[in-house]
Design a protein around this nucleic acid. Structure first.
Lengths: 129, 129
DNA sequence: CTAATAATAGTAATCATTGCTGATTTGAAG
DNA sequence: CTTCAAATCAGCAATGATTACTATTATTAG
């Protein structure tokens, strides 16, 4: 029940902290494997899930079929490209307004919220000439 | 390439239109089967995907591992219960503000957006003693 | 009515994620 | 510094939602 440290988990957190592109479990696995050649994919998933449950990272479930993970806990939203499925940050915070407006129309108890923007990212706009 | 009508698809649309609880493919299947006893789950999935791609219904990918479907295309958001994973409507529309604010910080081309609220629904609040 | 093709039922396959098991690591207490 | 129970791991099997495939049936334009 107590949380022990582990080199694998530390490496996963450290790697995530270096990235702003919200990698998938697979990407985390591929990268952490460069330092821990025989870390297993299961370990990556278990730790990402554990960290998300503890609230130390955020799990993003987008229209993409893979989960993405974000080590940045500051309030912000996300943009997902419909072409390449890349995920990028939208650093705005409308918590006050959004939660206030929602509370006026529901009795459900809101603890948090997420905003996803969809469209075509800058890079994919270029490609489509 | 041309779209033909099919009784199965009509039944799926008709069923979805009667529900405000954003059923999963499985739930759609169970219900439509009462009228079409040997409709297949694949047909349900194929049509839900087709309709979502055509923009005639919305596919909601939540923290729940199952997709939910919504026949109501009017601008509105969703609340998902962390306990029972029920999905309910939040009839507010902050498109103008949200898209305006996002456009001030990104060059990505935004075509649409989604807001998910999470928390404990009214029913689950009661259950908790 | 008929041919072309869209859609279906039934089932197999995919693939992200989770579960299992026996071995290894961690950390608190002596 | 040892000890030992509990936590974590690697490797791999299993799960489960969704998609793909194939032979058959339904739809619709002409």
């Amino acid at each position: 029940m107590t949380l022990n440290r582990s080199k694998q988990r530390d490496a996963i957190i450290a790697f995530l902290a270096t990235r702003k592109d919200h990698p998938t479990a697979e990407v985390v696995y591929d990268n952490v494997r460069e330092t821990f050649p025989n870390i297993s994919l299961g370990t990556v998933y278990r730790n990402l899930t554990l960290l998300a449950d503890l609230g130390e990272i955020r799990r993003l479930r987008t229209r993409d079929s893979k989960d993405h993970f974000d080590a940045d806990l500051s309030p912000h939203y996300h943009f997902i490209c419909n072409e390449c499925f890349s995920v990028s940050d939208i650093f705005i915070d409308k918590t006050t307004e959004l939660v206030k407006a929602a509370n006026e129309v529901t009795m459900n108890q809101i603890t948090d919220h997420e905003v996803f923007y969809y469209g075509i990212c800058k890079d994919c706009q270029k490609k489509e000439h």
